[in-house]
Amino acid sequence: MTPDQAFTRYEEIRNRLPAAPQGGDRVQIAGLHELADQVDVFVFDAFGVLNVGERPIPGAHDRVNQLRQMGKQVLVLTNAASFTRSQTQAKFARLGFQFTPSEIISSRDVCEAHLYRVSPKGQWGVIAPPGFSPEDLRVDALALQDNPRDYDQAGAFLMLSAAGWSAERQALLHNSLRRNPRPLVVANPDLVAPREDGLSLEPGYYAHDLQDRLGLQVVFHGKPFASVYETVERRVPNIDPKRIAMIGDTLHTDILGARARGWSAALITDHGLFAGLDVHRFIDISGISPDWIAPSI
């Protein structure tokens, strides 16, 4: 999928995303240090902001450390739901970022905390990454692969990762849900993610395909949906929302979700979804406008 195709698809599903007020002055800045007098808490997306695939973005370590030295709180809010909490911590350490566990909020952790509300009993069929261990989840879980009976026996479904997912497995899930509608929960609402070799398809892409074809209701946890922003706010109580800034590379997840929550937002343009493109064209079409635009953090 190309960036233009991804943007078009985000616009097609816009009615399923949170509504946000108009505004955002899209002021061009050189880096986040220019916002020190306006922002107390910097909340970073990961892909396209701190790293691209398995490579840290040049200068990202230094900027995060500079903000800490300026007395700012720094957090990561990631939709990458393939990893457990310890794996996520290890990933950032491997990339050279020294975030503490309390500074990392993943959509997977938030999602797991809500699963019992959706289906307190029965087995969950999980769209999971390679190497997934059912014991890593707080519910009875089975990784879905190529056995149709596993799909039909599940009492509910959870999408964590699209790594290893295929059109054939998507068809198995679709047919099982068509025969017997059950809850579907998605821990990564992203349609795509930037990698070294282009954009990968993510769980949100497959979930919205099922919504289109079956009309089922899907429960999403992750940007731009409210539960992850609520979790961040509990980590930084008594902070004016306008002095919390989401730093991201996508309009329909990072920027839209922040604006819907009353936060400020900065769009990073040179390493993620809009790398090499005229971002103002996409802002004008979507009406999702950040407060600031920077090439990198």
Rank of each mutant, 00 (worst) to 15 (best):
M1A: 11
T2H: 12
P3N: 12
Q5A: 15
Q5M: 12
A6S: 15
A6L: 02
T8V: 09
T8G: 10
R16M: 10
A20R: 02
G23F: 13
D25G: 14
D25H: 14
V27N: 10
I29S: 04
A30T: 05
L32C: 06
E34F: 02
A36R: 14
Q38M: 04
V39S: 10
D40W: 01
F44P: 01
A46K: 01
G48E: 11
V52F: 05
G53F: 11
R55E: 14
P56H: 09
P58W: 05
G59P: 01
G59S: 07
A60R: 02
D62Y: 09
N65T: 14
M70N: 08
G71D: 01
Q73E: 08
V76W: 01
T78V: 11
T78K: 08
N79S: 10
A81M: 05
Q87P: 03
T88F: 12
T88I: 11
Q89F: 13
A90M: 13
A90H: 13
K91S: 06
R94A: 15
L95Y: 09
L95T: 02
F97A: 10
F97Y: 11
P101V: 03
S102W: 10
H114W: 03
V118P: 10
S119E: 12
P120L: 10
G125I: 00
G131R: 10
G131H: 08
P134C: 09
E135Q: 12
L137C: 04
L137D: 01
V139P: 05
V139G: 07
V139W: 07
V139S: 05
D140Q: 09
L144K: 07
D146N: 13
D150W: 09
Y151N: 04
Y151L: 01
F157A: 06
L158V: 01
M159P: 02
A167G: 08
N175C: 07
N175A: 09
R182V: 03
P183R: 07
V185P: 04
V186A: 09
A187N: 00
N188K: 09
L191H: 07
L191V: 06
A193F: 05
P194F: 13
P194D: 10
D197R: 08
D197Y: 07
S200A: 15
S200E: 09
P203G: 12
Y205H: 12
D209T: 13
L210I: 12
Q211K: 12
R213D: 03
Q217L: 09
Q217V: 06
V218I: 15
V219N: 11
G222C: 13
K223A: 10
F225A: 11
E230Q: 15
V232M: 14
E233G: 04
R234E: 11
V236G: 08
P237N: 02
R243H: 09
A245Y: 01
A245P: 03
I247A: 08
I247M: 05
I247N: 05
D249A: 09
T250R: 15
A258D: 01
A260R: 07
S264T: 02
S264H: 03
A265P: 00
A265F: 10
A266T: 06
H271Q: 04
H271P: 00
G272I: 01
F274D: 01
F274V: 04
F274Q: 00
A275N: 03
A275T: 05
G276M: 02
L277T: 05
D278T: 06
V279P: 04
H280W: 09
I283D: 03
G287H: 06
G287L: 08
G287A: 07
I293V: 15
I297A: 13
